[in-house]
Each structure stands twice: as C-alpha cells, then as structure tokens.
Amino acid sequence: MIDFQENTVLKHKHAEVSCEEFWIKFVCGNKYPELKKIAMKLFTLFGSTYICEAAFSKMNFIKNKFRSELTNEHLQDLMTIACTNYTPNFRHIVHNRKNHFSH
C-alpha cells in the first residue's frame, strides 16, 4: 500500500484520466493484485446495481394496477423494448414501406 501511495507516476496519471481508466489501464495487476481486484469489484458493483434498479423501475411503470393481467411473455417483450437504447429510423421504414392494395 505504501509503494502504491508513493508512486509519483501513478499520482500524475490519476490526475490526468478518469478513475475507471486509471485502474484499468495504468495500475498493474501483477504489482498491486489485491488493490486492483478491490477496485474492479467496486466499479462493477455500482454499475450493475444501477442497471437493475432502472429495469425494476421500468417494470413497475409497465406493470401497474391498470395492467394487472399482463402475461409474463408480454411483460418480457415490453421490458425488452423499454430497456433498449435502440431508436428506429422511422423515415427509412416509412420510405421503404410497400403498400398492399386490395383487389
């Protein structure tokens, strides 16, 4: 721990880059294995908690008292739509749509 604290190169790097980038790119896992392991656990802990909480909030919004009879399959489909970052290109879809007229 003392070697880590006294490392001037790492001090300068820590001031220049983000905390995540510092631990991923500049802290050597061979030289500081326990510190790096703890840091990686802390970074993944908060990221996964946030994603889980955000998805749970979306599920509560979707499955409210007015939609109490949703099936699990339908809820899963709605959750997939709610949790994706994909934005369709509606102009492209409408432009390429072929109309089907009755005979």
Rank of each mutant, 00 (worst) to 15 (best):
E20C: 10
E20D: 12
E20L: 13
E21H: 02
E21K: 08
E21M: 02
F22C: 05
F22H: 06
W23N: 06
W23L: 07
K25L: 00
K25W: 00
K25Q: 07
F26T: 08
F26P: 12
F26C: 11
F26D: 15
V27K: 00
V27Y: 04
V27C: 01
V27G: 02
V27R: 00
C28F: 11
G29A: 11
G29D: 10
N30D: 15
K31T: 15
K31S: 15
K31Y: 08
K31M: 15
Y32V: 01
Y32Q: 02
P33E: 05
E34K: 15
E34C: 10
K36C: 05
K36G: 04
K36V: 12
K37L: 10
K37R: 14
K37V: 05
I38G: 08
I38S: 10
A39Q: 04
M40S: 05
M40D: 06
M40C: 02
K41W: 07
K41I: 04
L42I: 04
L42Y: 03
F43T: 00
F43W: 00
F43G: 00
T44D: 14
L45Y: 13
L45H: 12
L45N: 09
F46H: 12
F46D: 12
F46T: 11
F46R: 11
S48C: 11
S48A: 11
S48V: 09
S48Q: 14
T49R: 14
T49I: 13
T49E: 14
Y50P: 06
I51F: 08
I51Q: 10
C52D: 13
E53N: 08
E53S: 09
A54M: 08
A54F: 07
A54P: 03
A55H: 07
S57C: 09
S57M: 10
S57H: 09
S57L: 10
K58D: 09
K58P: 02
M59P: 06
M59I: 14
M59R: 15
F61Y: 11
K63I: 06
N64K: 01
K65W: 02
K65H: 07
F66I: 02
R67F: 07
R67K: 11
R67N: 15
R67C: 06
E69A: 14
L70W: 09
L70Q: 13
L70C: 06
T71K: 02
T71R: 01
N72M: 09
E73W: 01
E73I: 03
E73R: 09
H74L: 12
H74E: 14
H74M: 09
H74F: 08
Q76N: 14
Q76A: 14
D77A: 09
L78G: 02
L78R: 03
L78E: 03
M79Y: 03
M79V: 04
M79E: 05
T80F: 07
I81T: 03
I81R: 05
I81W: 02
A82T: 00
A82L: 00
C83E: 01
C83H: 01
T84C: 00
T84N: 01
T84A: 01
N85E: 14
N85C: 11
N85R: 12
Y86T: 01
Y86S: 01
Y86V: 01
P88C: 00
N89D: 11
F90L: 08
R91D: 15
H92R: 14
H92P: 07
H92A: 14
